[in-house]
Nucleic acid binder design. Sequence first.
DNA 1: AAAGACCACAACCGCCACTCC
DNA 2: AGGAGTGGCGGTTGTGGTCTT
Length: 251
Amino acid sequence: MGRRPCCDKLGVKKGPWSAEEDNKLINFILANGHCCWRAVPKLAGLLRCGKSCRLRWTNYLRPDLKRGLLSEEEERLVIDFHARLGNRWSKIAAMLPGRTDNEIKNLWNTHIKKKLLKMGIDPVTHRPLHRQASPEASPSTVTTDKSDDQLQSQGNEGQIPSSDNRSPAEASSIDGGTDPLMSCLWEDSAPVLLDELWQLSSDDDGNNYGSVIAGRMPWEEEGSSEWLLDIQDLENLDGERSISAQGYPRR
DNA sequence: AAAGACCACAACCGCCACTCC
DNA sequence: AGGAGTGGCGGTTGTGGTCTT
């Protein structure tokens, strides 16, 4: 097709966003919304491409974003959704309100993957590593002698022979068509029914994940309005920002 | 205290899907 | 029908902070 780049490289700023740029983008979108991302930088007076603006907004500036580390329960959800969906970060993120695909992807690559490996669980297939030594143990062709790098580059392709990027678990769920959680996910529905779905669904080994979510869901915890404070911080550009250039206190 | 290694995460890149004309 | 434009996704990279030697 031969498409144009999303922006002509000339005169377009790249790299980390300044507080002033953030402020401009926030003010513009809160006032006007974003009808067309390509037009946003021009209208907002930013020397950025629309794609960069969209990314900055969705991954960092969006008012409904949660900040800070994922709770253990959120982490567990990510692991389970990954087992079912593979590297479909946006789908996974959609089930965790206030979290972005980028955030979850980063978390997976930096934390969870290592954690699972440490526990002897293959982060790709979500099966015990030693079980994969036997040919019939896993539908995957992954073997234990693969390095972490190989697993990474393999992504979820290693577990998915078909071209549609489905994990074996999700493929079987879809083919079976009986998993309410999966049907919810595939229908892109909001996570409002998640509690019930967790209670209904159980994994291959019969574990009932409903018990994991016995109490409040992670996103019900307080702090969902912290963005207001953050925006106020951004608007206070003359003073010292209480948040770092990345937008939240660093570790 | 300094240097190098390692880690975490924001941002970029390239591709794909969808819509419009 | 198919080209062009746009949004969105997943993989990767760059950068700054922290840790280790």
